[in-house]
Nucleic acid binder design. Structure first.
Lengths: 261, 261
DNA sequence: TCGTGTTTGTTATGTCGAGTAACAGTTCTA
DNA sequence: TAGAACTGTTACTCGACATAACAAACACGA
């Protein structure tokens, strides 16, 4: 009785059985249905009973797959991080490595587009989560966030390696920042994977992220709705170029960004 | 029976009666209690029953003051907008008008400080609101948001008038943006009160807001928690100076920002 | 093929919070 | 002081989360 319980985390790698595939499919359907509800209702909330009804089931059946609402939410958050990270990485990798300016533009556009297309999922990961939800401390969500942010960093790292990154424009003496960053690079407690970058590069990267994220947040939550879309697009494009220039990235090659409407 | 219902919105101006004062005090206590609960629980959610319990009342009594949860939330949102706007305006006005760089720094610091001190209220206005809540279209929240943003604009307007604003650094040719902005200034459908500013100034202002907001959002929702506070402060300060420089604002006078920790 | 244990669904039920109804005490005002 | 308005109460409905107990389908070894 006692050792029948499988220890989660290091299951032996065997081919998934028929039942396991069915279970995985159901889990996926539950998540997709939850996302559909969020999209239709425009919130980050959903009801178990609604999910069950749309799936032709009763609500308690869902508890066979998720212990509670929080567990489902956590999975959705992790998926959203991964999805955003993948979307950004894919857009980035469609631009040649020797055009880091273009790569950053692609990252920025895909970040914005993802947020516009999935405002609820965007709110899920970068807004304040659903009331009553408490993310597991240092859990999978933190891990996924770390990975997503690494996408941006690798861009700067590659640019540095290729010698395509000018010194970023910085406000003034940043000796203290450089020192603090160096200390923490040594202590290796920065959450970004991969090799280290120069302090001023790191700072430029963070500035890029914050500016990009700020515009995206404002737009995604409707705070820029008073601007016509055409104007928003133009201002975003201009802002991104400005940010890139300030961060020391070269001018992007003039090309149509893939998938940019 | 029919015409007993008072039409909301144009009540005659008489001195508040004893009862009206008591009612206003109760409404205020309800709001404060809701805020206290939000702060204690770290969410934008609250339970009517909890509010009532903390006030020594029963839950249904609250419906004498607010028709439902949404109505209370709307008031809290409006209050938050006004509060943030006031905090920002106050910080700004403690710096002389002839130091627009310093004024912007003060605005930025107070914006950030407010968000850090009241992350729940910040989420309430600039994040995705509580599930199930639907803001009244073009209602008081929109109005309050408009006013709050006008605080930033007036800073740039004053700087322009005083001839202290250099031409902002822009990415490249922005003729189309200038044209679109000019059209919308003529159409007067921009949400910002007060006299118009030049298109490039407007663009710079928006860039300032987005960058400031981005950093603030990331920090307020804990996405920068991996940085020690000292480093966050330094990077924020540096970023703000950079943004100001890029926007064409002069270097701020070296002074201790009021209330800055 | 059969029987047993696991998985996945069901219905019935408990709990809790939003919101309403009916009623009671208090305060204002004519 | 009587009636109207206001503000609170208790009792109740409703809907959602979550659990318990049970039933059907499935997997698999003898």
């Amino acid at each position: 009785m006692a050792d029948e319980i499988p220890q989660p985390g290091h299951e032996p790698e065997r081919p998934p059985s028929r039942r396991e595939r069915a279970r995985a499919a159901t889990i996926e359907e539950i998540k997709q249905t939850a996302l559909r509800l969020m999209r239709e209702q425009g919130t980050t909330d959903f009801r178990f009973s609604d999910i069950a009804r749309l799936m032709g089931m009763t609500a308690p059946a869902l508890y066979r797959y998720f212990a509670d609402r929080d567990e489902l939410l956590t999975e959705l958050i992790v998926d959203a991080y991964n999805d955003l990270g993948e979307a950004v990485a894919e857009a980035r990798d469609q631009i040649p490595v020797d055009d880091p300016g273009g790569r950053f533009a692609a990252v920025a556009h895909s970040y914005r587009r993802w947020a516009r297309e999935e405002p609820q999922r965007f709110a899920l990961i970068l807004g304040m989560p659903v009331p009553g939800y408490h993310a597991p401390e240092e859990g999978p969500t933190t891990e996924a966030a770390r990975r997503a942010m690494a996408q941006l960093k690798s861009l700067f790292y590659e640019a540095t390696q290729a010698g395509l990154l000018r010194r970023p424009m910085l406000a003034d003496d940043d000796a203290s920042i450089a020192r603090m960053l160096a200390e923490h690079h040594e202590a290796k407690d920065l959450p970004i994977d991969g090799p280290p970058v120069a302090p001023e590069t790191f700072q430029a990267m963070l500035h890029c992220w914050a500016s990009l994220h700020g515009f995206t947040c404002l737009e995604s939550y409707g705070h820029l709705d008073w601007m016509p879309g055409e104007l928003r697009d133009a201002i975003f494009e201009s802002s991104i170029r400005l940010i890139a220039k300030v961060a020391g990235l070269p001018e992007p090659g003039l090309l149509t960004l893939p998938g940019d409407d």
